[in-house]
Amino acid sequence: MKRLMNPGLWITLLIVVALGLWPTITRNAATRELVFTILLAIGFASSLNILLGYTGYVSFGHVVFYGLGGYIGMYLFKQYNSPLWIAVPAGGLAAGLLAFILGKSILHLRGGYFALVTIGVNEAMRAFINTLKPFGGPTGIELDFSVYKPYGGAANALWLVYYTAFGLALLFIIISFMIKTSKFGLGLLSIREDEDAAEVMGVIAPNLKTWAFVLSAILPGMLGVLFFFKNGNVEPGDAFRLGFSIENLVMIMLGGQGTVLGPVLGAIVYQRLRGLLLVSPLFKNIQLSVSGVLLLVIVLFIPVGAVGWLRNRFPRLRRVLP
């Protein structure tokens, strides 16, 4: 575990720990909600980065894993009164399974075609669940207030959900780092750089890509369970909102794709900015447009993102910022 002694990893973890403990200190529910949103984004973006940043495949409809996880969890809560510690892994497992099946069937598509098919998968899933009676069709699943009882009431349950998300975000940042610095990760990076050349060198690209896809899907599945449990209800439109995927792509771009720190920074900055725009009377109504202009500027002028820019500007940082 010597490779875990990397300053870049510790900087990243420190940032997230400081952020995560902030509501604990203030004991303020509003702060907790704000940080929860950021942690959710950190976890989702860091996961998506395994596929996007390391492997070079653009999963545009990645929210499908979040939505599916959410639905599986809600179904378990509703039908079986299942505890959180079963529902959360179940959501992750379902997402991972879907990713495995998809990985075997769609990862041979490259570039734009892959991005398109992931959009199609998300829309198909949304439309399918919309017709699915056990999942409540278009009205979705609504939880009874009593589900929070075993956790000592709703207030406590919300804190529990918060700390679970916090822990999972930390865990997956470590996992993301370990992937990046592993042999598996090197294989992924070589696929990103030149898939054909990588295969000639012996990289079994179909398998590696599938596992990258699975790993990038598990946490979003678990986060979906947490979010909708806290939310109390889930509907197809909320669970499979394409914009959610895209926001996370923006965060990764902002921070720097393919780096461990990038998605974390991107998530924090994006969510903070969005929050500020939403409360500003001037920008409230055109918040989306301002974000759009910002995104365009990043895409056009700093496509490697903040961390990527730093790494290019100061090559010494490559070792420090994985």
Binding site: G56, A115, V250, M253, Q257, L295, V299, P303
Partner: peptide
């Protein structure tokens, strides 16, 4: 990259 063109049009 495709990500760039996708995100540019999305912006």
């Amino acid at each position: 990259s495709h990500l760039s063109t996708l995100l540019a049009t999305y912006s």
